[in-house]
């Protein structure tokens, strides 16, 4: 594999092809914060907390350190006024949903983020997608997925699959940086038909309880 020389925070770094900025920074002891990154999973680039500034042929731009591949002569700044300001705002936006998440609080301290800056909307989920991706990529069970889009996007268990697969697994639980996942699971559990119990008669495909379905 060919060697790639680049500069991160003023340090000369020798990386190998296929590495991301995050990987390369790690080799010289520079830590870039991440929330949605997981070594076993495909790079995702959703939380953007790993945003860094790079200069490509003299042009500065903002990229996600966890997915941007190293390039020859790339100049990377993992901390700058701009980067810190962006991370601060992103943290404040996430804290509006998950004010008590420990990981967020630790980062908030580092970047001076105000936990109460934005009005609270405690949905808990910060959409890192770790649960969804872990279940799909590692466990290959697809018991939890994303639904909807934009500001309505959330995670949701598929009751039929969750009832069979989740009870003995729950490996995604410790991955969740907030308490959203447990809450979603508890909600799904209440919808999960108990073994041998009567199957829900609702024919609608929303996650209603099956008693007052609109499809009847």
């Amino acid at each position: 594999m060919s060697e790639i020389h680049l500069q991160i925070d003023g340090k000369e770094v020798v990386a190998s092809e296929g590495m991301t900025i995050l990987d390369a920074a790690k080799t010289v002891g520079i830590a870039i914060p991440t929330l949605c990154h997981h070594e076993k999973l495909e790079p995702y680039g959703g939380c953007r907390i790993c945003t860094v500034e790079v200069e490509v042929r003299g042009w500065p731009k903002l990229v996600a350190g966890c997915i941007y591949p190293v390039e020859k002569d790339l100049v990377v700044r993992t901390r700058s006024e701009k980067v810190d300001k962006i991370r601060k705002v992103l943290l404040e936006e996430m804290l509006a949903h998950a004010p008590d998440a420990e990981e967020l609080q630790a980062l908030a301290k580092e970047y001076g983020a105000d936990r109460d800056r934005f009005e609270k909307e405690p949905s808990f989920c910060i959409h890192c997608g770790l649960c969804v991706r872990y279940c799909a990529e590692i466990k290959k069970k697809h018991a939890v997925g994303f639904v909807d889009r934009g500001s309505n996007r959330e995670i949701s268990f598929i009751p039929e699959i969750a009832s069979k697969e989740c009870w003995d697994c729950k490996e995604c639980f410790p991955l969740c940086p907030t308490s959203a996942l447990q809450a979603a699971y508890v909600l799904a559990e209440s919808l999960i038909p108990q073994p041998d119990a009567e199957v829900s008669s609702c024919s609608c495909s929303c996650s209603c309880s099956g008693k007052s379905g609109t499809g009847e």
Partner: peptide, 27 residues
């Protein structure tokens, strides 16, 4: 609309997990 049985059938025939169908149907 997309009745649930129809979605289940599509998932089964195309070998696509329900989570993906649900995501698409709501996206």
């Amino acid at each position: 609309w997309l009745p649930k049985e129809a979605l289940a059938r599509v998932g089964e025939r195309l070998q696509v997990p329900m989570s993906r169908i649900q995501q698409i149907a709501s996206f």
